[in-house]
Structures are given as structure tokens and as C-alpha cells.
Nucleic acid binder design. Structure first.
Lengths: 343, 343
DNA sequence: CACCTTTGTGCTAACGTTAGCATTGCTGTG
DNA sequence: CACAGCAATGCTAACGTTAGCACAAAGGTG
């Protein structure tokens, strides 16, 4: 690799002069600057950021720590972050945890060793103590999920209200046997979504056991298939289903298609998230739309500002974006009942 | 940030001893090692890789340079790479080019400044001269697309054969007015796919003008919608459509759903790639399946080996994976003709 | 002409880590 | 007891860059 020393030797000047010429220092003559730049360009010089970091410069890398990039929520986020950060000269490091706290810890160790400038993290259910320590030493931001022992900067969506609204929609249509299929309550998002589901039921005066729930790994398509199979068995199968995870939704849709379940005839369904395929699935999937793009842009802007200014303004920050129910054809009153007021 | 010096001062020993204790050097007494590790752990010491790199250690970061992470091909690749590399202690840097050669160049400059250990790149149509220079100085690997001025290591799929097979399938069913909608021929993949399409037509003895083609930005869902609208206009609209890009496929499916086009009645369709929604779209989308996961694993293994061994074995390497046609319900003979032999 | 200022450049140290070489104190052997 | 050998540790330099200070030459001012 070419260094400033190589350029200096070739031009018979000192490394200091080369360094200053490259950083456009006012004290260097225009002629020298020109010759240095010429030589640097010819020789393919690229500054060594590791050396700059040793001199106190900060890294230009921000890490995104997420469960799985194949989840369209996360790839959307990665894209949006990348786009916003590229404009500011930052690079994006991608770390997938697979929702495994030990993998998360290993990644955080590496990120810390690499002295990344900041971290945007969707934490696992219970991050390792060392992960917490490592994050304390880094500007970081929690995304979607929120763990109390991490920093108090958080960008998320209103999980409770989203699920409440979705469930209320089904209640309004007259459903009384409604199932919820979502992630485990260990995850803050899982807990909030389940809570939203129950809120809607109790607000409607429905008994708590009106709602059947299946909680499982939120990023397992396969679990979605199994769970919906279980839910539809037996005589008192629910007439409506609300989902609390995009991957589970994908599994459910596949299974329902394969088994030829009539939607919304036999079962009303409200999905979670919005994928291209959701609009063309069966009668069109009514689903909980989330402003993921805006969320990611918000994160990017916040972090960019945080990294460019003094770290004084590190007060707690919370941004809760509302979801919105996207109405399509997959929900209808059960057994042709009237749309409302029949309980 | 805690350094070895801090640990040394606290324990009243030299930095050398601390460094050696942490790297488990045989010359250091067990007792000292224990004390150093204890202190390091308590103080939250994390080695500074920038400093190690200055001493000749190589980076543990590999960059993935792709057009857009939201494309499921690329998110699958990113996931697979990440998974394989994490096991070897490598981290993944993500750079999105948006198929813009200047953005690509900016990213490569940064990656080079950060002294990444290697690069896996899906190059833009015509990478900038400086991009080529930069890549020459880095172990790199081309993925899917292949540009002659870059290195001779390439992992791709058989674009020509995949499209030939897909088109031949339609020809066999009796279609004589077939359209191809894919990426521009400036992209090596676009050119190969188009060539495959034409190969199938000429093998079938069909005139070249039997095939209508629409070439546009391969990652624009919107362009897919517009293009299929154009294709279906007019009296001699094609009876079958083959696609050459996953994003264009998404656009086409949306548009066909919205317009209520009968598939395969009015139009037979062969998609590109395989997404969750493809199986439940209309009658099920017949599509060109590609072994993206295997491809990514191959890349990861090749690069990990390359980075761990001496760079002697840098001979040309090419891996071409075959695609496979996934038959579902979206293709049928036109106008109820017999499945074959009716031309 | 002595002095100050300006302009352009060089020298040196520092960042954190590590490898080579030097040093210290001890044990064992002749 | 002298000395070799060894175990444990310290000292120093080097990686590439940059900032502070020093320095030389030239021009301007009294």
C-alpha cells in the first residue's frame, strides 16, 4: 500500500509536507500541492484510516445489529440507513444476531474492537451483561425493541396500539373467537403486541379466554405454518386471526393457501407488516402497516447529528411511530353476520 | 477508551507484559496473566484493531457491494455471507450502489481507506476507472455480474441457460408471440438473459421478431408495471411473458393483479427468482429459481480461504450455478391449444 | 543594516499495539 | 564460587498520520 512516505520520497520532500498538501493546508504553496496531488493520484494513494484513528480521528462506520437481514423490515431499514449515511460519508456495518445473545455479544465485541462510531441495534430479548457494558461505551440507539438496561435512545412503533386497532377491527366485525399469533413475550415488542390484543378484547367486553394465543419464534416462517395448523384444529377454532410478526405472517399465508382455507369466509386474517405479495394474496391481506422507512430515516438523522456534534446532548430520546391498518379483503364478519353491533 | 497502558499502570507493570499476557504468551507467568486478565475484564478493555492494523494485522472486515439490499437476492446473499463469516471472526460491511457508478466509486474509496480485507461486489454496468484501480489493490470477487476489467474471480448463475429454458418452456406450449422484460444489455446479466431468450426463439425456428423485448432499470418495480401495461396494449399483444429481474417481476405481478388479467388464460408468465409470494400469486407463478443461497455460501467459503492463506493461489476462478424452472400454474398453451407440437 | 514578519518546509512526538532484543534475578552445575 | 541457562519482565522501535514547534529564506520596516 502506498503511504505518504512513498510520495514524499518520490518528490524529495517530507511526509509532513505531503500530509499538509493532501489536507489542503494553507501554508503549503500551490505548486507543491499540485505536485503532491498529482503524485498521489498517479501512485494510487489512499489514506489509511486506521492511522488516522490512532491520531484521534473517529471511525466513519456505523453498525446495524439486527436479527436477520432477510426480514423485509430490516432490509428496508438497512437500505434507508445506508442511503442516508452514505451522503454523510459514513459506512454501514451489518451484524446479524439471529436473536442469539451470544452471537450478539460476539458481534458487539468485534464492533467495539473496530471502534465503530455508533451502533443501531434491535436487541435480543435479554442481552448479555457484557453486551450492555460494551454498548455503554458506544453511542447507540435502540430500534423497534427496547431493553431497559441499554441506553435511553429509542426509535420504535406503537406496538400496543397497532395490535389493539387490528384486533378492534375484528371485534367490530362481530368476531368473538379471535386468535393472536406473535413473538414471545420476552421480547418487548412481543409483550406489547400481545397486550394490545388483550386490550382490544377487554375493551369490547369480551372474556379474556375469547382470545387464543400462540407465541413462538418471531422469525420462523415454519412456526407460522405449524401454529396456524394447530389453531384451525378442533371444534371451537377461532374465526379470526391477528398476526404479530412478518415472518409468521408469511408462514400463515403459505399454509392457508396450501390448505385452501376460505378467507375471509372461514377465517378472517390481519397480517403484520406490508410486503409486496400481501396485496395479491387471496382477497388481499388486511394488515398492520408500519412506517419503517420513516423510522429508519429518523434513526439515521438522529445518529448523524449525534456523531457530528458534541456528545453533550445525550438526553433520553424516544420516537414512537404509529402504525396504520391497511384494509383489504381478508377480513369480514363471521358467518355473514352484520358488520357491527351484534354481540 | 481503556488501553494496555491503563492496565499496565494500574498493575505497576509494563505495557509489553500486559500485551503478552493478553495474547497468552508462554513467557509470562500464570499469576501475571491472571492478574492482567482480571484487570482487563474489570476495566472493560477491548483491543484496538486500528492499532493492530498499524502493526501489520489485517482487517477482519469484508465488504459486500450490491445495488440494493431490499432486493431479496441480495439480502439472502448478505445473510448467508454474514453467517459464514461470523463463524470465522469476520464482519460484514454493506455498501449499496443503487447501480450508480459514482456511488460505487465513493464506497470503494471508503472501503479502501478502511483497509477492508476483501470485497464481494456486484459491479455496476461500467465501473469507473478509479473503481477498477481500487479493486486491483484488494482481494475481490465478482458476484452475479461480471465486468472484464475486474478480477477473474466470479461466482454467478447461468443466465443464458436459465432464460433459454424458461422461454423454451413457453415455446413448447405453443406460444409464438412471447415478450421478454428484463434489465438493460449494458449489464452483463441483462445481455446474457436476453441472449438466452433469443436462443430459445431461434432454436424453435421462430422469427426473431416473434419476441418483443422491453429493457429497463432492473431494480424498478414501477418500471415493471409500466412495461407490462405497454406490452399488453394493441392487437398483437404477446400471449406469454418471460421476466429477467426479480423487481420487474414484482411490478408485473402487481399490475396484472390490479388489471385483472387472466393468467394463464390471457397471458402466460414466467417470473424471475423465487419470493414467498410467488407461490400464492394467482395460479402460482412459474418462475426461474436460482440457487442464491448456495452461491453465497460458495463466495463466503472461497473468500475466507483466500484471506486465510497466502495470496499465491489467485488463479482465475469461475463458478456458474445452474438455475431451475419452478413449474406452477402461470403458464399454459395459448387459446387452449395442445401443450406441444401444434406449430 | 538590524530586526520583524511572512512563507514554505522539516523535525519530532504521539496515538495503541507488538516483536525483537536487553535486562534482571534466580537455579543448577561444574 | 563462577558461570551457564532459564524464567520473567522491561525497553525500544515501528506501523501511517498529523499537529505543534522549529527553522530557513525572503521581503518589508525602522
Amino acid at each position: 500500500m502506498i503511504t505518504t512516505k512513498d510520495i514524499a520520497e518520490r518528490l524529495g520532500i517530507s511526509v509532513s509536507t505531503v500530509g499538509r498538501a493532501l489536507s489542503d493546508d494553507a501554508r503549503i504553496s500551490e505548486e507543491t500541492k499540485f505536485r503532491v496531488r498529482q503524485a498521489a493520484s498517479e501512485m494510487g494513494y489512499v489514506g489509511n484510516r486506521a492511522a488516522r484513528m490512532m491520531r484521534g480521528a473517529s471511525s466513519n462506520v456505523v453498525a446495524l445489529v439486527i436479527p436477520d437481514i432477510r426480514n423485509s423490515f430490516y432490509s428496508t431499514i438497512a437500505h434507508e440507513l445506508s442511503k442516508n449515511m452514505e451522503a454523510e460519508g459514513f459506512q454501514l456495518m451489518l451484524s446479524e444476531t439471529d436473536d442469539d445473545r451470544m452471537v450478539e455479544l460476539r458481534h458487539l465485541r468485534e464492533l467495539s474492537a473496530n471502534r465503530v462510531a455508533g451502533v443501531i441495534i434491535v436487541p435480543t430479548a435479554r442481552p448479555h451483561g457484557d453486551s450492555v457494558k460494551l454498548l455503554r461505551g458506544l453511542p447507540h440507539l435502540q430500534l423497534l425493541r427496547r431493553h431497559p438496561s441499554l441506553g435511553s435512545q429509542w426509535f420504535g412503533v406503537d406496538d400496543h396500539e397497532s395490535l389493539r386497532e387490528a384486533t378492534a377491527h375484528l371485534v367490530t366485525q362481530g368476531h368473538t373467537r379471535i386468535a393472536y399469533l406473535g413473538g414471545p413475550t420476552e421480547l418487548p415488542t412481543g409483550a406489547e403486541r400481545l397486550r394490545g390484543f388483550h386490550s382490544a378484547l377487554s375493551e369490547a367486553g369480551l372474556p379474556d379466554d375469547a382470545g387464543r394465543t400462540e407465541l413462538g419464534p418471531p422469525s420462523s416462517v415454519e412456526y407460522g405454518r405449524e401454529a396456524v395448523r394447530r389453531l384451525l384444529e378442533g371444534p371451537d377454532a377461532p374465526t379470526a386471526l391477528v398476526l404479530g410478526s412478518i415472518q409468521l405472517t408469511l408462514g400463515v399465508l403459505e399454509e392457508l393457501s396450501e390448505q385452501g382455507v376460505q378467507v375471509p369466509g372461514e377465517l378472517s386474517v390481519v397480517g403484520f407488516g406490508d410486503e409486496p405479495g400481501f396485496s395479491w394474496w387471496g382477497p388481499g391481506l388486511t394488515t398492520i402497516g408500519l412506517p419503517i422507512q420513516e423510522l429508519a430515516t429518523g434513526c439515521a438523522l438522529w445518529l448523524m447529528r449525534r456523531l457530528k456534534t458534541k456528545p453533550e446532548n445525550d438526553g433520553p430520546y424516544t420516537s414512537v411511530s404509529p402504525g396504520s391498518l391497511v384494509l383489504r379483503g381478508s377480513t369480514a364478519p363471521p358467518d355473514g353476520k352484520a358488520p357491527s353491533g351484534s354481540a
